[in-house]
Amino acid sequence: MDTSKVVLEVNDLGINFGGLRAVDSLDMVIHENELYGLIGPNGAGKTTVFNMLTGVYPPTDGTIKLEGQVINGKTPHEIAKLGIARTFQNIRLFKNMTVKENVLLSLGAHADYNFFTGIFKLPKFHAQELAMEDEAMRLLDVFELRDDSEKLAKNLPYGKQRELEIVRALGVHPKLLLLDEPAAGMNPQETENLMRTIDVVRKQFGISILLIEHDMKLVMGICEKITVLNYGAMLACGTPEEIQNNPHVISAYLGE
């Protein structure tokens, strides 16, 4: 078995929306520096899992542990600070802020100059702002966004907006990065580039990534471990080979 450090451990996670059991008794373990896939058809509950992991929805039952610490009941910003960052299925950028400001925003949550230092522009403000700006540019380089740094986020083409969202999430300094269908709306070529970059990001930053994607082939290609959701329940979990040969998965996917 894998002996590397556990980053995320989810036990018996479930949530009800009124009468709908959107996610039911989900177990999941994500290790350090692992690229983990979460797949399943539309409406399976994948995004809902992300919303529970990031504190947007409180789970009805179960526990979520980040590096051993239970994080259920924490607010989204607390969870972000503890080290879970995410992107959204429907892009949520700060549209009227510049590309660079989008990244500075998440980096700023780590700076510690206070309000008065900021409004009176004291030396600490200068030092930290310059350092953040430097880091923002380096993060933007990962997706070749440096030249767009002064554009408003809303003026970026669609694919770049998705990438900027990832850069902003990296600014959170996450231990675990959640990507909700990052390739949605991209053509096969763009998708392939993106997946390669995601793998580079994981290695370069040494973080774990949980990736939602409904293109099964794509996930099989790059993820080390995969969980398949179906109607909120875990259908299968394992390595890509195990998933490919799993009779439940075969019947669910081929039976459709």
Partner: peptide, 19 residues
């Protein structure tokens, strides 16, 4: 920037570590 980000998208601001 935190104040402006709330205007732009409160959920994304929280997810980026903004109280």
């Amino acid at each position: 920037r935190a104040i402006i980000s709330i205007r732009e998208d409160e959920i994304a601001a929280e997810a980026s570590g903004i109280n």
